[in-house]
Design a protein around this nucleic acid. Sequence first.
DNA 1: TTTTTGCATTAATGATGTCTTAACCTTATT
DNA 2: AATAAGGTTAAGACATCATTAATGCAAAAA
Lengths: 226, 226
Amino acid sequence: MNKSKILLVDDEPDILELIGYNLEKEGYEVHTASNGREAVNLARKIVPDLILLDVMMPEMDGMEACREIREDPQLRHALIAFLTARNEDYSQIAGFDAGADDYIPKPIKPRVLISRIKALLRRSAGVPESTSPLPAQIGISIDKEKYLVYKDGEELSLPKKEFELLVLLISQPGRVFTRDHILASVWGNDVIVGDRTIDVHIRKLREKLGDDYFKTIKGVGYKFEP
Amino acid sequence: MNKSKILLVDDEPDILELIGYNLEKEGYEVHTASNGREAVNLARKIVPDLILLDVMMPEMDGMEACREIREDPQLRHALIAFLTARNEDYSQIAGFDAGADDYIPKPIKPRVLISRIKALLRRSAGVPESTSPLPAQIGISIDKEKYLVYKDGEELSLPKKEFELLVLLISQPGRVFTRDHILASVWGNDVIVGDRTIDVHIRKLREKLGDDYFKTIKGVGYKFEP
DNA sequence: TTTTTGCATTAATGATGTCTTAACCTTATT
DNA sequence: AATAAGGTTAAGACATCATTAATGCAAAAA
């Protein structure tokens, strides 16, 4: 497997150095940022597998950064772990609600941190996650940058939700995505929508791109097939 | 989606009650055990999605139980989180090495716990088990991601229950699964169905895949054999 | 600001496939 | 032969999804 990319974010250079050193020693590809704003921008560029976020930072704090990251479809599946002073129960809760996957207490003990990171990455391993340009080939292709879809050369412009749903499904053609997965990916984890919302969007896609591309697996979810 | 099953293990009845209550309130299906031995046995029966394990317990402690659970192929993919007194750094490390997915410090604050559980389950929901096709080889093979079954190259799409039943049986070819085990795995523990339900589904599988693959062990259960 | 437009969501209804049941049949075991 | 366990079948109950139209909302245009 490729090296996992970790984005380490803290405003204290000492911490960046100490932790960064230890992570690199473990074979991770480490990038660093010293505030939330910088972190979000860098994350968009490098698309890390895991983001370690200090909660307290100037410019933009960790929780705020976390929310922003979670809103980017590219980064929605990145793991996010908070680094925070212990006994900050409030931030602990808020952190998770903002979409974090773990919470790591300061002061950080490198060995503990490594164990924990391994556990986190172990979980998400095996999810290819289309970082790269999408498989064009068949009938339908996508240009994420331009937010455009091509069907037999014809250029289509889809609304946001439809587009994101399509991107998700087409990212792994043939694979079934459960409704829960779709909701988590396209809508986000804390958005609550009714039962029929996904169906309607699927229908729009079928209408615009052809029924045959989208297969329903009853009780499970949907998949895209060429 | 089905309710997630959580197995809660602690030797203090008060904890079981408090945490159990809160988890049920969140819509989880909760089972409890008060020591490691009991936990392992119960886990084999109900096949939980997540196991919350106290570290310090009589009879068999959490770490030992964790190791044993990880050795059962049925349970290999269950999430395991340790509950332990804070500042026990050693057990923290050892816990992860035993194959745990998270570490939750006591005293437990219900809201914190819930957040964390959600994060854990959210993660694993997006990873529907092994990324790659199962055992495969001759005759019949399965692709869980695509929800497809291949019989001599031919592609079949089975309904949910049939598919899940097949996945269970084929996960350990040759092994006999009792009716109870099948019910717990495929139907869930609180679902009550009649005596003939399993038979009917087995029959459908035999119809579609060939009689020879599914052997009945009278008075015991069924097994898949290549 | 007001109007307009288009998207996201919901609600209501209809269609379809899946699951379960019930009644009866078959087979092995004693 | 009697019994218990499972096999078979078809019909009805049930769950899930498809479809459509209407609503609310927010961004863009006037």
